[in-house]
Amino acid sequence: MYLNNLLIFFLLASLLGCGESKTYHQKDFVFGTIIDIKIYGESEINATKVSTEIFKEFHRLHKLLHPWEKSVITDINNAISQKKSIAINNDEVISILTDAQNLEAITQSLFNPSIGKLIKLWGFHSNEYNQEVIPNPDTLKDLVSSKPSMKSIKIVKKVLESSNHNNQIDLGGYAKGYALDQSKKILKKNNIKNALINIGGNILAFGKHGEREWIVGIQNPRKPNAIATVSLKPGWTIGTSGDYQRFIIINNQRYPHLINPKTGYPENKTQSATILIPPSKNSGVLSDVFSKPLFIAKSENKINIARLLNIEDFLIIMNDDSIFISESLNNKINWEEDLDKKNIEIF
């Protein structure tokens, strides 16, 4: 009898040990893009509760920061174009705008969140991109030479004033990254250990996938598959700016939504720029914001910009399929395609 009980005990114990942790997967559509949340090693109830809370936060931010549907941002933009000052009764928005000002300065205005007018002229202030004509070149030229910039926006005692009336704030290159940082807070608050959050290509690896690290595929800009995969260590983020999600085609020419603030025209010699950002409080924002200068800068300046911004891990795919990759990322990446090594330049 005694032996039998012992045997049953061991059998049960071994079965318990085999209970495999599951990954819970939820999707939603916010910020005009697909949001993908994976939570590993939690109960289904807990995982659902936390991802619902994260989606709720994303919807809140989407409404708060929307560039063309009524939001605090459109209120500010209306005041600026009417040459009025405006009181902002929202500390969060003030801290976002101040942060965006700093990031514009750091990126030498290659990230410029005050070019809403340019983005609108190119037809990207819409849920569908169906503009069929290039904006009037003179209008573009006048707008660029008026130098819209966050520098000409002052916020004193919660009152915003812009000395440049062509400024129109558009946080399209910031909001998704900010949302990623917010999701980090929600995961921590709920004691979640392992999750992967993907907001339209800005990804946060929170913890790990059990024993292994989270693995992320990097999209091939011209094919429906991953060109490479990379393991993300806990806390790291990855961000890509690409010409293949939001673009218009006029006379067989592709015009992506990433507009060079210095020329007024979309950058069309680059297919994608991908960066990895190590853990920090604002790693989400940096993964979103810092991929823009790498995408927009002229090919001869891209590497210098990466150095200036201390981006150690970058991958840039040019229009002629040539690839610039940093040595650090080259050591981490797994290519999923047979690429012509001649086209890959390591920095």
């Binding site: 994976k38 996938h209 989270w214 693995i215 961000g239």
Partner: peptide
């Protein structure tokens, strides 16, 4: 099984 958990695009 896919080789990755999510794709960066």
């Amino acid at each position: 099984k896919k080789k990755y958990d999510s794709i960066n695009y």
